[in-house]
Amino acid sequence: MSKTWSQKLRIKQFKDSEVTPEELFDNRRALLKSAVALGLLPSRSYGHVTDIEGYRPWDQESPGILNSFEDITNYNNFYEFGLDKADPARYSHTLETHPWQIEISGLTNKPGVYDLDEIIQSMQLEERVYKLRCVEAWSMIVPWIGFSLGIFLKQFEPQTNANYVQFFTLYDTDMMPGQRSRVLDWPYREGLTMAEAMHPLSFLATGLYGKTLPNQNGAPIRLVVPWKYGFKSIKSIVKIVFTDQKPLTSWNQANAREYGFYSNVNPNVSHPRWSQAYERVLGQGFFTPRVPTEMFNGYGEQVAHLYDGLDLQINY
């Protein structure tokens, strides 16, 4: 029997010493809880997350130590709810994710508006533990739940000239008050080549840590493309368009010199703001040093062939 895509993943070992001992972890939690009780910390809510049943759990080794649910849900770039990394956790409760529809259009034989609940019911949900590398030179390990983007897109029978896929976030200034400030050209949009979208690593997430996605992480459905900088992984998707032209993408529009269309994780392409050679793994102590960033975020064996013949220094 041939190996599944996930068995082909290059798996990194991590040392025992890198794992927080459970006792210490519990101590820290107790301290944090007492800090909340003392009013030193705001207590945070996670919206209406519910348990996800019947997904296929991740049975491979993790690309690193899982970040805590607290870290993953309290340190987010989601400018629709404010520019501070704590803003999405504080303010995203205004987002109503039920009911939710996704419009599929462009060069497809099955355009239409589809109900997300029905989509989720029709897909086999599975868990994928991926490393998320932000262009701001930090990373975290997240146990996503969702389904393969490629398998999902194929159902809509994209036409042969559909070379790209474009994604749109919801545009609603009441539910996403951050959109009242014009820091980006709303709605947020992102894009992939068809080959990238069809790659087995490309993923649509509807949950994390066994629960539905908290609003601040892009509820109810978001993209996860683990070999690209995090901003490519667009959140709260309402529209997917098949197109024959390279689509506009938000950060590229805002500052093309800093944010390319591909935005593959690449330690060799210098960035005017952050050195991309190293990254800080979130959730570590103050004295833990940065670690070297890997080409394609460590997924090179699976994805490098997508860029054969392309100069990645120019097409960053």
Partner: peptide, 16 residues
């Protein structure tokens, strides 16, 4: 924050 008595978030170096 550095001794983890209060929570300065998961990216403590950046926060400092």
């Amino acid at each position: 924050g550095i001794i983890n008595f209060i929570n300065l978030g998961p990216n403590i170096v950046e926060e400092v």
